[in-house]
């Protein structure tokens, strides 16, 4: 898989994770989704896809 494809799939994954985090009313799921989003942001940073310092400030 190319870098660009990896970045695009990560973005999509982060969008889905964020959506789920916003929708859920279960604290444990919300926290897990928050951490998943953080790791998506981290992986994108490491592939040079820079939008914001922390995932909470990103517009997806």
């Amino acid at each position: 898989m190319t870098r660009e494809e990896t970045v695009e799939r990560l973005r999509e994954l982060q969008r889905q994770v964020r959506h789920l985090r916003q929708e859920t009313e279960i604290p444990t799921v919300e926290r897990t989704m928050q951490l998943l989003e953080m790791y998506c942001h981290m992986a994108r940073w490491q592939l040079g896809d820079i939008q914001a310092m922390v995932p909470e400030l990103e517009e997806l």
């Binding site: 820079i50 922390v54 400030l57």
Partner: peptide
């Protein structure tokens, strides 16, 4: 440069 600009703004 991109990372620094993002950080400085933040």
């Amino acid at each position: 440069l991109k990372r620094l600009q993002t950080l400085i703004q933040y």
